[in-house]
Design a protein around this nucleic acid. Structure first.
Lengths: 161, 161
DNA sequence: TGTGAAACTGACAGCGG
DNA sequence: CCGCTGTCAGTTTCACA
């Protein structure tokens, strides 16, 4: 994982495409080299499939933290949520009913970064209290929700709307 | 969203590819039609980008539930986690430190399915107690963690390992 | 709307420097 | 690492069911 690998992976995430041509435009790395790099990344297991799912452990973002946030705000919750989403490493922001107001999930490099994350939250005026839960082990992480269903269930539930 | 659309989307999720040829093998739908359907699904916003990210609201899986599970088990936690992962709709299973033992995220069609989900959990002998949190609104859900970072941060954190 | 055939375009493998 | 070239798969178009 050198700078070029990171640039390519970042470009894929940002552009939402793996077209060598588009990646070339974004990164200025020669198309031929894009191929070369992508092959290596696939062999190393960093990129897992044709859909370019990333192995977070392999890229070095193996630390997952779930943060419950209790917030106090006058405006709309969108604005608050947007601030949460802007904090580096935050991938998911949920507005919830129940004990806490928001549940946030972040993917980080190491424990040091957890501290940084928590400070980022506490620095926001709207944040009253946070409760961070450290993930010891990610036992399942299917980005593709349909994978979590039997075909027949999907046919029953989703067909015709 | 008719049966064919669902079959195609399910095949993409299972196979981890969007190769029309492979999808044809899996679904027996003519390649030409695969194209035709995929185009429509993209136009309708069900498929969001070249990486085939799915709009969960658009497919009808817009209900998200976060379940804290307190479990009592003699064997290894893998076995328990596997049972959780096998429950329909469950996309993420985390083993955590802290108040609860597991945190699980599921994507469902409607409130009725939430009941089903909770019963599925409670039916497991290892499960002692569950606490479900209903997600009112998903304010951010980036499957691609790298998107949640500035390029410079990634370069600092990830280059050379 | 769905599907087959024909024409086009981009992706990917291999070699060579 | 990267340009070049041939091949092949993916894509678009269109005509017809």
């Amino acid at each position: 994982m050198d700078e070029r690998d990171v640039r390519i992976l970042k470009a894929i995430a940002d552009l939402g495409t793996d077209s060598p041509e588009r990646l070339h435009e974004e990164t200025d790395i020669p198309i031929s080299t894009i191929h070369y790099r992508l092959n290596n990344l696939r062999e190393d297991g960093v990129i897992e499939n044709d859909l370019n799912d990333i192995d977070l452990d392999a890229v070095g973002l193996g630390v997952t933290v779930i943060v419950e946030v209790l917030a106090e705000y006058s405006g709309t919750y969108d604005d608050v949520a947007e601030k949460f989403g802007a904090i580096e490493g935050v991938t998911q922001v949920y507005l919830t009913m129940g004990e806490t107001d928001f549940i946030v999930i972040a993917h980080l490099t190491d424990s040091d970064m957890v501290e940084r994350l928590v400070s980022d939250f506490e620095a926001l005026e709207e944040v009253e209290r946070t409760n961070s839960t450290f993930v010891i082990s990610t036992l399942k992480d299917s980005q593709r929700a349909l994978e979590a269903y039997e075909l027949n269930t999907l046919l029953d539930e989703l067909v015709e709307e």
